[in-house]
Design a protein around this nucleic acid. Structure first.
Length: 359
DNA sequence: TACTCGTGGGG
DNA sequence: TCCCCAAGAGT
């Protein structure tokens, strides 16, 4: 009964405070019978994994314009999908996105409508399966992401640090999940966490749950959820070779399908920790730029030496391949590779590089 | 279980 | 500047 009052309270807050998001069907539209498109829900949820709403918006627009439904995406060219995902990070998501699209398309073109069946698909785990089941199929599945963990930890003043507290927080989230409008409720808790119950300086004064919040009652809201401090990131050193043939073609390589930047286009070289230390991918007058790219990944800092060369027209690369200047766009590279290109591009004249398309 | 896997913004 | 963090999943 208390749980029911809480979820009802939050749904009322959501009715007037729901954010307008490109992939969202708001409460007013749903009242008129409009239902969310499972394809759009799935695509947005995968993009939003560990990624901010602001970063996702443009990518979501580009993907849905280019591939409006699951069949279109299933038929897409792998390299083009990876190119469109470039810059968004966690590239295994893009590879799994395609696998998932092809699996769904091959079995009739409709997403399964249960959490268990959804979770069998590539790239769909405990969170995403619950989110799709709740939002697209109106199923009362508990949706637990970082927002929900934080909100539950505060609402119930859970002192156990994450990630150990996860089962406890999930149990609270499940108990609160209503049978009515579970999709709106899931989005409501996440909106609450994203806009009110924020990690730092939460806006408790305007929170619909300020009354029942146990953390606020004891003034501990900024201390929760407790977390174990992460160890410092090591620094790795790497090198990339940026070669430009006389006709303007660039020497690139397709990275291995798994591992760091897996499946993405990039400059030949080594990213530190990859074996062995890399030799130039083709014979040529390689010279260091005298400046390094600094980039931070999830678990290490990278300092990247950049070598450049103008290569003769008959160069046969030992590694990678030449991509015509018209076919190459820096925007299709992962960010760290784009940074390296930005540094190297100053070596060639404006005349030589000005026609490069951005995307 | 513990690691691996991107990127950009905010404090 | 540096750390935290964001609608996590795969191995």
């Amino acid at each position: 009964m208390r749980d029911k009052a809480l979820s009802k309270n939050l749904l009322e807050w959501y009715d007037t405070h729901a954010r307008i998001l490109p992939w969202r069907v708001g409460p007013k539209e749903q009242a008129t019978g409009v239902r969310p498109d499972p394809y759009a829900v799935w695509l947005s949820e995968v993009m939003l994994q560990q990624t901010t709403v602001a970063a996702v918006k443009d990518y979501f627009h580009r993907f849905t314009m280019r591939w409006p439904d699951i069949r279109a995406l299933a038929a897409a060219d792998d390299d083009e999908v990876m190119a469109q995902w470039a810059g968004l990070g966690y590239y295994a998501r893009a590879r799994n996105l395609l696998k998932c699209a092809r699996t769904v398309a091959a079995s009739g073109g409709r997403f399964p409508d249960t959490r268990a069946a959804l979770q069998e698909l590539p790239g769909i785990g405990p969170y995403t399966s619950a989110a799709i089941a709740a939002i697209a199929f109106d199923r009362a599945e508990p949706v637990v992401d970082g927002n929900v963990e934080r909100v539950m930890a505060r609402l119930f003043a859970i002192e156990t640090p994450l990630p150990k507290a996860k089962p406890e927080l999930t149990a609270h989230a499940a108990a609160l999940t209503p049978g009515h409008r579970p999709g709106d409720y899931a989005q409501a808790v996440m909106d609450l966490g994203a806009t009110v119950c924020t990690p730092k300086s939460p806006a408790c004064g305007i929170c619909p749950w300020r009354g029942p919040c146990a953390a606020r009652a004891r003034g501990a809201q900024t201390d929760l959820p407790r977390k174990i401090r992460k160890p410092p990131k090591p620094t790795r050193h790497g090198i990339v070779y940026i070669g430009r043939r006389m006709d303007g073609a660039w020497l690139l390589e397709r990275r291995p399908a798994s591992g760091l930047l897996g499946g993405m286009l990039g400059w030949p070289g080594s990213m530190g920790g990859e074996t062995p230390a890399s030799a130039p991918p083709a014979p040529g007058p390689w010279r260091p730029l005298g400046a390094e790219v600094r980039h931070t990944f999830t678990h290490f800092h990278l300092r990247l030496e950049v070598q450049v060369a103008s290569l003769s027209q008959n160069t046969t690369p030992e590694r990678g391949f030449f991509l015509d200047r018209q076919a190459f766009a820096p925007g299709t590279l992962p960010t760290v590779m784009r940074k390296a290109f930005g540094l190297a591009a100053t070596c060639w004249t404006v005349e030589e590089t000005r026609d490069l398309p951005l995307k």
